[in-house]
Design a protein around this nucleic acid. Structure first.
Lengths: 149, 149
DNA sequence: ATCCGTGCAAAGTATTTGCAACCTA
DNA sequence: TAGGTTGCAAATACTTTGCACGGAT
């Protein structure tokens, strides 16, 4: 099978965790990297592969995504629409980025900047809580839907 | 049945929406108001009622929670642990408050302050997105679990 | 009396698991 | 070759829905 997904040391990372770098796992990574900026559910990934005449088992995709999340290669998020959606983690990001979710058309936009430093400091100071990660979602209307109101 | 849940105009609010203020719906509200600060799943609510020798159908609870959320009396949140948890909305809050989720013991703490004004302004300025609400969760270790590390 | 609400059971849907066959290192 | 991996099907688990009965206005 092709090796379209290019991330340095990705194969090594699998080995570090005692996993094999199989064809199916490459395919899942290929789909994710071919859709940067998208937020794909397990089913999305299967469908996209089917369009390329490739069939791999749903459960394999689920197991692969759980594995990739454990390796911190992908990040799964629940957008309150019924299923977990995944995207590749950007190595440069220290923390998870934020999402703008349009409640009308369902589009999801990433926000790169963090801008939570002040709030995190406030929490550390006032709640004695050790923050490891965060998830921030804004619900509202995207540019297109807003203008059509 | 008793009317333990005291919120002015709650009955009127039901009528405004064309709903009846029934015993079961009162009971769900009673449980929620008796556990302010908790985040109860549909199943939690049924179990708490069973402890008081009260049995109401699971589906009634589900339907009631959906209804209450539509009326903006409760707020449902998915804490990525498999089910939707609900809590009463504080009328004084303009926006949804935030949550600290301990990844070790699972405890959930509310953060009252908003502190997202700057970030929201940044989004409005840069993404042309009309924000209606947000969900912010911090994952990490609570005071207790942090100290036991 | 009418219409909404209730609760049981069945259906639905995303996800997980068991297990025999398969493939990779 | 040995042990992880795959994929089908069955099992889970939360949530939703159909429908007949019951209750509220």
């Amino acid at each position: 099978m092709n090796n379209n997904f290019k991330i340095s040391n990705i194969k090594e990372k699998f080995h570090q965790f005692g996993y094999k770098y199989t064809g199916q796992r490459q395919l899942v990574l290929d789909v994710l990297s071919a859709h940067l900026g998208s937020h794909l559910s397990s089913n999305d990934i299967c469908e996209l592969l089917k369009q390329k005449q490739i069939n791999i088992g749903q459960s394999t995709v689920y197991r692969t995504l759980v594995m990739l999340e454990k390796m911190q290669i992908v990040q799964g998020t629940n957008f309150e629409d019924g299923f977990t959606r995944y995207e590749l983690v950007n190595d440069n990001e220290e923390h998870t980025h934020h999402h703008l979710i349009c409640t009308k058309c369902g589009s999801i936009t990433d926000i790169k900047s963090d801008l939570l430093e002040d709030l995190e400091q406030y929490i550390v100071d006032n709640y004695d809580f050790m923050i490891k990660d965060h998830r921030l979602k804004f619900f509202g209307l995207c540019k297109n839907c807003k203008d059509k109101e």
